[in-house]
Design a protein around this nucleic acid. Structure first.
Lengths: 372, 372
DNA sequence: AACCAGTGTGTAACCGTTTACACCGAGCGC
DNA sequence: GCGCTCGGTGTAAACGGTTACACACTGGTT
């Protein structure tokens, strides 16, 4: 069928060991043989078989990536960070989407056995510990945005990375409540770890701000635009009516703004709106959406670095849980920035106020949209 | 180290062959042995090794996917279609990004040998035939949006899928020129296959419409937002000034609209703008952007189906080149749809006119943006 | 009684690599 | 001349599965 190392060896008049040594630069080979083998391999178009190599070396140079989905602005950016870092370290990516389904995750995990050296797992809807428990102790795993119940907080049993959902939500809600507004939240579901943390930040911020807080102001959502639309309608029916809405992600915030606009409610004059994630579209909607910027790409990049580190040290390193900072980005939907009519405001995020650091948004966006 | 099939066999008091037969449902095994093996395998948490399996069966159940990038609205949607279809057929995905660099592509191709059963390759910037030429004849490949110079048009040497760049551009330019407008184009680069086809559609549409056409009205771009911004400035300096701009993709169209707005030029009254791709953001910018909708997700899905078909038939099937239709979507930036101020127009694509079919945009978007 | 079909099982070859080990010269100090 | 190291090479055993083949046993035909 295909041309194997034996074909090359026979053709070049040497043994397979010598061919292997030349191709991997392992062990001494005479210059003459070296040249002839190189030439033969090129002529025969020989390419070593990955599966055989992996089996023999017990190393695949491949990282498994298991995300809830593979598309959408959020996951896309995660993958970007993962891909970029992995390829820099000459590793391949075996990706799969779990659809947050326990069976699918378990199946994917089983299927990856022997095909990957380590795993990056993102599963915000499920307890990750029970998922990775069946895996052998020596198998390196990095968790992304997962609830990690097991182990003490300062000595986790598995590596984990999170963005600062709590802190970001806290900052946003303090900002929204700052003008004496009554703040409602559209949540992201009870099962979701990110959603729970953001809700916790919301509650603590209101408490610390001395602002009023009612259970009815916590409207359930599911991270999708439609939920934001529906939830905003419910907010409008509340008495006293909240004067600010914190949506647990940007998609729901955008849905909420749609609903408010249809109802003739002005944003931000009547009701201010804030989101979470700072997806690229946030700066483009009208009015430009205040949000919490999370370093999504960096999250993926750091995950790969941690995984490779574990690989190098035989997974004997000390496990850590790391939280990446989130930054408040104030645009017009919460009263900051420039008014809607002026110049590029709806199209370019030139008028945003960022805390505490200044970001440079156009670069990222300009690269992200083109194709080909 | 890990638990292998031999461990299971020893523990269950049978031979490896029997264990293998049970786990794969191949060949007859007594009910008693079957039960004991199942129980033992579960107790030992045995999971077969993928690499060993691939090597032995000469089948990996994995598809290679090589794209210019892995992120951004466009590629993200392609991956979505690929992932969804592949997992439905129980195949895994080994993905890689090429950055349109010849060396990287060749390296990735080599690395995939023995790890994948077939390949989906998207490389709009490069002649794909010279890329896949080194691959063995028996290795199935599906090209996406590639220039395929080799072979007669009706008997291509390799499977290929494209979207109707020419037809979509043609429809858009006929639409823009319909009101007697002078249409300029912002191109996507000479090397890019998609860009070339869209330029061809532009030229033919102007010719068929009997509209004026000048070489100076073809402004070079590169598919990125910044290029659209710069190109629009150049358009404004032309005399007579064009009254419509066809940007070869949406990212450049959005950049162009920014530039026009900064210059105080009204869109669409003074200059109408049309894009290409219909990325999710297109309906959200202000004014909502007319574009050409391409079935990106379906492109990925079809590619997988073609690949699996080739796999089933030992790659002996007859190669085909297929073109997926593109649809004109008229929104306000080209004079269609509702005016900017009314209701949800800037936020929801409720006011768009679609030809020839009606699409249902909210569904896709609502799923695409959330995370978790 | 010889034959055959069919079921259940084990042995061993094979998939395409890497690599431990053995071996053989050559060069060199003693 | 003897033992040494050391560069260069080949042989064969892994790696962890699948599977062709042989074989044993059972029960029903001829």
């Amino acid at each position: 069928m295909k041309v194997t190392i034996k074909d090359v060896a026979r053709e070049a008049g040497v043994s397979v060991a010598t061919v292997s040594r030349v191709l991997n630069d392992s062990g001494p080979v005479s210059e003459r043989a070296r040249r002839r083998i190189r030439e033969t391999a090129a002529r025969l178009r020989y390419v070593p078989d990955g599966a055989a190599r992996s089996l023999s070396m017990r190393k695949t140079n491949t990282l498994g990536v298991l995300l809830p989905e593979l598309y959408g602005e959020f996951f896309s950016e995660v993958i970007r960070g993962i891909d970029h870092t992995a390829r820099r370290h000459h590793h391949h990516l075996l990706v799969s989407s779990s659809h947050s389904d326990r069976c699918e995750i378990e199946a994917a995990l089983a299927a990856m056995r022997g095909r990957v050296d380590g795993l990056i797992l993102m599963s915000p809807d499920m307890d990750a510990h029970t998922l990775v428990a069946p895996l052998p102790e020596s198998f390196p795993v990095v968790l992304l945005n997962c609830a990690t119940e097991g182990g003490a907080a300062d000595a986790p049993t598995v590596d984990a990375l999170t963005v600062d959902n709590y802190g970001g939500a806290y900052a946003m809600v303090r900002h929204l409540a700052g003008d004496g507004r009554r703040v409602a939240i559209i949540t992201g579901g009870d099962e979701n770890h990110d959603a729970r943390e953001r809700l916790r930040g919301f509650r603590d911020a209101l408490r610390d701000a001395g602002a009023e807080h009612r259970a009815a102001w916590e409207i359930p959502g599911d991270f999708r635009e439609a939920a934001g639309f529906a939830a905003a309608a419910r907010v409008l029916a509340l008495r006293p009516r909240p004067t600010a809405i914190f949506a647990a992600n940007d998609a729901m915030a955008i849905g909420a703004i749609s609903a408010l606009r249809e109802a003739g409610v002005r944003v931000p004059e009547d009701i201010a709106v804030g989101g979470f994630d700072d997806i690229p579209m946030a700066a483009y909607v009208s009015p430009p959406l205040s949000s919490v910027h999370v370093p999504i790409t960096e999250l993926g990049a750091r995950a790969v670095e941690r995984l490779l580190h574990a690989l190098e040290h035989g997974n004997t390193h000390v496990r850590r849980r790391e939280t990446l900072p989130a930054r408040l980005v104030v645009r017009h939907s919460s009263g900051g920035g420039r008014s809607e009519g002026s110049e590029r405001s709806a199209l370019a995020p030139s008028a945003e106020r960022v805390e505490p650091l200044v970001r440079s948004p156009p670069t990222r966006r300009r690269h992200g949209m083109g194709h080909g």
